[in-house]
Amino acid sequence: MSKETASFKLKNALTELDSLFKHVERFGKSVGLPKKQIFQINLALDELFTNIVSYGFTDSNSHWIEFSLSFDNGAVVIRVEDSGIPFDPVAAPTSGSVPPMENCKIGGLGLHIVKKMMDEIAYERKGGKNVIEIKKQVRP
């Protein structure tokens, strides 16, 4: 089975989201993913990227966030690496499926969406970096 890969890096700015979507779309189309799965991968990466940009860095310098995507044996595997403060999205609490209507504490909603959209998520802190790996089985 052939293995397709793509990698790119983005600056820690929300304006980079458009570029993230273009990269994911190009990769998804090149390996023949249906629109719905491209949407779901976009969304999961958007949530992870937005978290890193919003909370990952305490200085105001520019930092790179690295992505690599691969398609192998019917699954898309994505690795996201950043050099921000240690944060484990696997252990972090999520909002659960029904957010409390009466108070606005719905932090963790983004991670809840990531975990629902993807089949696997793993985290490790390695060489001063947060390394997140997510996997999505591709169902035709």
Binding site: L43, P99, C104, I106, L109, G110
Partner: peptide, 12 residues
């Protein structure tokens, strides 16, 4: 497309 950032505005 909508992400959790959009959902938050709608909830608020």
């Amino acid at each position: 497309y909508i992400s959790s950032a959009g959902l938050r505005i709608i909830l608020k």
